[in-house]
Amino acid sequence: MTVLPRAFAWQRTDTVGGEFVTLDDRRGLRAKGVAFAADNALYTCRYELQTDESWTSTRLEVAVDGAGWRRTLRMERAAGRWRVTTAEQGDLERVLPTAPMSGIEEPDRLHAVLDIDLYNSPLTNTLPIRRLGLHRAEPGTKVDIEAAWVLFPSLAVLPYAQSYEVLPRQRILYRSENFSAELDITDDGYVTEYSGLATLA
């Protein structure tokens, strides 16, 4: 088993929950994390996430568990195309009737996606920040991207338009549809404060 040299932990500020991750970011990112929350349904998840050396997302494996159900998702990007596979045990809909199906029916809708964004995860905001060099960019720099938004606990995958704008004093303004939040970041682009959502422990 590989030992990863760095670790971060965030405490949720909007609900009971948190995220812990170990990672190696010397040549792109390799991360293993665990998160739990009580925001939609009580759940815990374990994930492995990998990028290439340019910080473009290439692989995600995630399993989400709750009382009486389990869902898994695997995403892999090769030759510019995403392959998405899912599995389910038990019945999440019994606990959360509004839960969508896991995965995505048409993976080709992800053709423009270079970043994976896990639902309410401070870690995955670092992916476009590092890929685009926003942690070193001048204030006022703004970029628009499309990410693969992975919803918890359902593991539905949605292509999602997002924007990142560099603010003074190591802050980023993140926007997606009608949502916006300020992100305080470290020198190397990791979130220390996600307004209204989480804080670095």
Rank of each mutant, 00 (worst) to 15 (best):
V3I: 15
L4D: 12
L4V: 12
P5L: 05
P5W: 02
T15R: 15
T15S: 10
G18C: 04
E19T: 07
T22E: 14
A31I: 01
F36R: 14
F36I: 06
A38Q: 01
D39N: 09
Y43K: 14
T44L: 15
L49A: 08
T51I: 14
S57P: 00
L60Y: 06
V64T: 14
V64A: 08
G66R: 00
W69N: 01
R71M: 00
R71A: 08
R77E: 08
A78T: 12
A79M: 02
V84G: 11
V84F: 09
V84D: 15
A87R: 00
D91F: 11
V95S: 13
V95N: 09
T98K: 02
P100G: 12
G103T: 00
I104E: 15
H111C: 09
D115P: 06
I116A: 02
D117F: 04
D117E: 10
S121E: 11
T126Q: 04
E138L: 09
G140W: 00
G140Y: 00
T141V: 02
T141S: 10
V150Q: 05
L151H: 04
F152K: 13
L155K: 01
L158N: 13
L158T: 09
L158A: 03
P159V: 07
V166S: 08
L167E: 11
R169N: 15
R175I: 09
S176D: 08
S180E: 15
E182N: 10
D187Y: 01
D187R: 05
V191I: 13
V191A: 10
T199E: 10
